[in-house]
Design a protein around this nucleic acid. Sequence first.
DNA 1: CTGAAAGCGCTTACAG
DNA 2: CTGAAAGCGCTTACAG
Lengths: 334, 334
Amino acid sequence: MTVSRTINGHPYVTGETAKKVRAAIRRLSYRPNHAARVLTGQLSRSIGLIVPDIADTFFSVVSHAVQETARESGYLVWLAASDEDPTIEAAQVEMMTHHPVDGILLVPADSRNGYLKTLASGTTPIVTIDRPIEIATTDSVGVENRRGARLAVEHLIQHGYKKITCIAANSHLLTVKERIAGYKESMRRAKLPCPKELRVSSPSAAKSALSELFGSRNRPDALFTTNNSSTILVIETLQQLDIEMGKDVALVGFDDVAFFTLITPPVTAVRQPAAQLGNIAARLLLQRINGEFKASSIRTVLPVSLTIRESCGCKKGDAGTSKASAQIALALID
Amino acid sequence: MTVSRTINGHPYVTGETAKKVRAAIRRLSYRPNHAARVLTGQLSRSIGLIVPDIADTFFSVVSHAVQETARESGYLVWLAASDEDPTIEAAQVEMMTHHPVDGILLVPADSRNGYLKTLASGTTPIVTIDRPIEIATTDSVGVENRRGARLAVEHLIQHGYKKITCIAANSHLLTVKERIAGYKESMRRAKLPCPKELRVSSPSAAKSALSELFGSRNRPDALFTTNNSSTILVIETLQQLDIEMGKDVALVGFDDVAFFTLITPPVTAVRQPAAQLGNIAARLLLQRINGEFKASSIRTVLPVSLTIRESCGCKKGDAGTSKASAQIALALID
DNA sequence: CTGAAAGCGCTTACAG
DNA sequence: CTGAAAGCGCTTACAG
């Protein structure tokens, strides 16, 4: 039919004919069958998004942003959660790939898992969010992990704290490792003793680890937690152990969460631009899909900033936000 | 090909042939083209989920649960956010419908919007979550709004509070209206004065409304907030106005949020089974898709419970959770 | 039990 | 500028 041409804005259609066609379309409330279109090799106008946990404060914000910019381009998004399990993740990728999707946005559960190699060398465009793939090269969007950690730790050092312990959950993640590295770097520069990071996984593990730590003679005067879940876990545990945050021990966390303002004392944290991360990653993927880039891999690193509240020892009104320089490192890698 | 038959487990295939086919499938790592399947009238094995805001603590938990039970059945889910805008919602529904999806899970932005009538009478199965459609009948899964509100308000009354104000955001929503009705019912039964609910929309509106309320001679001694966003907004505002929650004024909220334990004092709230809501709704939709129900509309109402912490005036250890009776009202409506 | 044919609803060259 | 033909990759009857 000429219908196809009209719908797809083909140049060779008389205004007259086009008008008739459009009228008929309206009258019959005709909608093109998407599946048929895809079958002829058209784009599916859909992308996949796989995150570890949709209910996580950070990833839910990222997901919302991704959905928003996809919608603006007329794209629909498949959302899946891996529960930090590479097997589930791979299965979801497989399903999406064959549904099919035009591209996938991925927060890998394990950035060294073998299946990622196959994925990255496949034909479906991939953009990683937050955690880059370590064993292959793809487009990626992340944040300044190391610099954020240094921002946090150096702020604690300026307060005069000398026994700063680093606490980590999911310490196998590259992002967390980089934050730990940033912590170490700052401690060494300040010539401060740099104990190994404390790993907490479950609430019960956290409770025994922290109660031991605070019972020892190396009791810390400040804590740096490396992601939102470890920050929340530590705050919870400190309450249970009757250790008063901001008074008995200072705390700065990596990843700022909306409700940190509601806690007593309000929590100082490194702010990541979560929504922006989602927006930029989605836009990048869409551009890839449309073949707008020739360059092989684009690695985008977004700046972070320290949001100073009171858990670090500052008092209300002491300072505002120490906005980190808004430099965006955008490097092309071959 | 015989391939199709083998894959779809058709009875008439020799074990011999089937084995060969499967070997070939493995060797070529063949995957059936989903679009082609759909084109021949098969199910798409996908459902849509539209919520107002993916980043909301309540909806993100619901979304995670939906995704999980869909995955267990080999289904993929489209996730979209309406931003509480019926126009966006209708557009997303339209896209999903034609993609196509086998069914849609919906939290309507406006449960009286005209387009819902068309939707409900269409061929795509619909299950609403949390907010039933008011102008048409579909399957729905929700919670005991009125009873939850009474649980909250009666607890405050037992504490001896007499001037209890109800605070609402999004008061056009049926769920919120029912909670307000529950509040009124409890107040009337206790022969307490029952002021009109206070509506808060933005932080600034909340600030002026609350500062006026607490400056008046009808200053309340307790507050009942009708959803998580109004609870959070009120807590924030009270802090700004230097009104101490739990001391200057008691507070019980509808919808419990994980971080309420971290606030000082910890917040007492009506707990909704968010994850269960998502699981049950997804399962119901999948059953509908598979034609497992003949009955016209299934309305599921899940029980809520009061999680008692300290913002209501209780002290640590005063009481545990007053589990509401676990009765599930499951009614068939014609 | 297995193959050949027709068709799902579109799009992409190819003729007029 | 517009129509007829062929094909995308599957599945569903229909013959063998």
